[in-house]
Design a protein around this nucleic acid. Structure first.
Lengths: 230, 230
DNA sequence: CCCGGAGCTGAATCGCACC
DNA sequence: TGGTGCGATTCAGCTCCGG
C-alpha cells in the first residue's frame, strides 16, 4: 500500500491484477488456514510459498479491497481501465469494492477453465471472472470488438511458479483492451505473469508484491525475458 | 405471490426461473420504461407484450426478490435446488436476495450467448448467469458431472413468444441436475419455456405468470405439446 | 444435399438535442 | 444545469435462400 501511495496521480493507463481471493472454506477456521493448505490437495502441500492478504473475513476483506482499489483509481488516468480477477464466491463483494473504490463497473468477463475439477451431481465450478471497471468514461483503445468469454487452460502444476498463476495467453487477451505502449499496474504481481504478458505485447509494467519470496521469483523470471532492464 | 403462498410446504423438488432483471438503464426514467422499449432496438419495437415487475429500483428489487425467493424456499423440499437467471449487472443483488431468502448459494453457471451484440473497444457482454442455490445440503440426483458453462444460441426473434425467451436446449441442460419425474416450480413462467423443457424431459411442472397475455400464450403453447393434460 | 454469401438481429450503449 | 428521450452505431453468428 505504501508503494501504491507513492505513485503519482493519473500516471497509469490500466490496472490488471489478481488479488488474493480470501474465499476458500465456508468456516472461519478453514479461511484462516494458510493458502498453501486451503487451495491444495493434501499431497501437493508445501510446494508453494504462502502469500499474504488471504485470511481476512469478508467484511474486512471488502474494506481492504476498497482501500487499494481507491489508491489504484487515484493513480489511473481518466478513461483508464481496471481488470480484476475474482472467483464466483467473492464476485459480489468485489463488485462492491470496485465501485466503492470509485470505479465505474462495466462488465464481467468470463475465464472458462476447461480442465476444472468436476464434482459429482453438480455443475462444475469451471469459471473465474474478471471484473471490468473504468475511471469515468472508457477511452477506447482499439476499434475491435473483444470477446466476453475466454477459454484458456490453467497452467500445469509442474510449470507453475505461483499457486494461483494465470495463463499468459489469457493476460494477452485481456491486454487487448489497452493501447499499445501504455503503462499497466499490477498491485499483486505474484510471480510476474502480468509483467511477462505486458512485456511480450509492448506494454510498460509497474508491479508491487508484498511477499519477498515471490518478488525474487518474479525478478528471476523477468531476467530470463530478453528485452528488459530493471 | 398469492399463488406461491398457496402451495404446500416442501412440495417441490426444484425451482428454475427467469425473473425480470430490472436492469436496463442507469436513470430512473429509463428504468421506468416498459421492457419492450428498454431491451429492444427501436425498429423492432412493439413485437412483444410487456411483462410486469421490471421497473423497480435496486433496493426494492432486492426486497421483492427476497420475498418470492423465501416463499419458493418454503415450498421446496430439503436438498432441493434453485436455479435463477440473472444478467451481469444484477448478479450481486441476486446473490444477496437468494441467500436472504434462505438458500445456500452454491455456484454461478454461465450461459454463453454466441450472438451477443458487440461494442467497439470493449469486451462483449455475451453471458447471462444462472445462480445455483440449495435448501441445505444438496441431494445429488445424478452421478454425472455437469458442465459449468453452456454455449447455446438465443432463440431467433422470429420464433420467439417472449422478449427474453430462453432456449429450450439450455433448460434441458439445467434440468439435468434434477431427478427424473420430479416437480419443478417456475414462479415467472412467461411463455412456458421451462414448462416445455420439463415435459420433454419427464419432469412435472408448476408455473405462475402474472401477465394474462403471457398466461394465455403459455396455455396455447403447452396444448400443442402431445402428452399433456391441463 | 451441400455450400456460400447476403441479410438481419441483439435482456445495448453512447452522445447529443431538447425541455 | 440537470435529467430525459431519441437516433445512430457495432459485427459475429445465425437464418435463409439460391446455385
Amino acid at each position: 500500500m505504501a508503494h501504491l501511495k507513492a505513485l503519482d496521480e493519473c500516471s497509469i493507463d490500466a490496472v490488471l491484477t489478481d488479488p488474493p481471493y480470501s474465499s476458500g472454506g465456508l468456516t472461519i477456521g478453514q479461511r484462516q488456514q494458510a493458502p498453501s493448505k486451503k487451495y491444495q490437495s493434501s499431497d501437493a502441500q508445501k510446494k508453494f510459498a504462502d502469500f499474504p492478504g488471504d485470511n481476512r473475513d469478508q467484511r474486512s476483506f471488502i474494506t481492504w479491497a476498497t482501500l487499494w482499489l481507491a489508491e489504484a483509481y487515484r493513480v489511473t488516468k481518466p478513461g483508464g481501465v481496471c481488470m480484476m480477477f475474482t472467483d464466483w464466491r467473492q464476485l459480489p463483494a468485489m463488485t462492491d469494492a470496485l465501485q466503492a473504490g470509485g470505479w465505474l463497473w462495466r462488465n464481467i468477463v468470463v475465464w472458462d477453465k476447461p480442465t476444472a475439477r468436476p464434482s459429482r451431481g453438480e455443475f462444475k465450478r469451471q469459471c473465474e471472472f474478471v471484473l471490468i471497471g473504468s475511471k469515468g468514461k472508457l477511452t477506447p483503445a482499439t476499434d475491435r470488438c473483444l470477446p466476453g468469454v475466454y477459454r484458456r487452460s490453467i497452467v500445469a502444476s509442474s510449470k507453475r511458479l505461483h499457486l494461483t498463476e494465470k495463463p499468459v495467453p489469457l493476460l494477452h487477451d485481456l491486454l487487448q483492451i489497452t493501447p499499445e505502449g501504455c503503462t499497466v499496474l499490477d498491485p499483486f504481481a505474484g510471480s510476474a505473469t502480468t509483467a511477462q504478458a505486458c512485456l511480450e505485447t509492448g506494454r510498460r509494467f509497474i508491479g508491487i508484491e508484498l511477499s519477498q519470496t515471490y518478488f525474487e521469483t518474479a525478478c528471476t523470471r523477468l531476467k530470463t525475458l530478453a528485452n528488459w532492464t530493471l
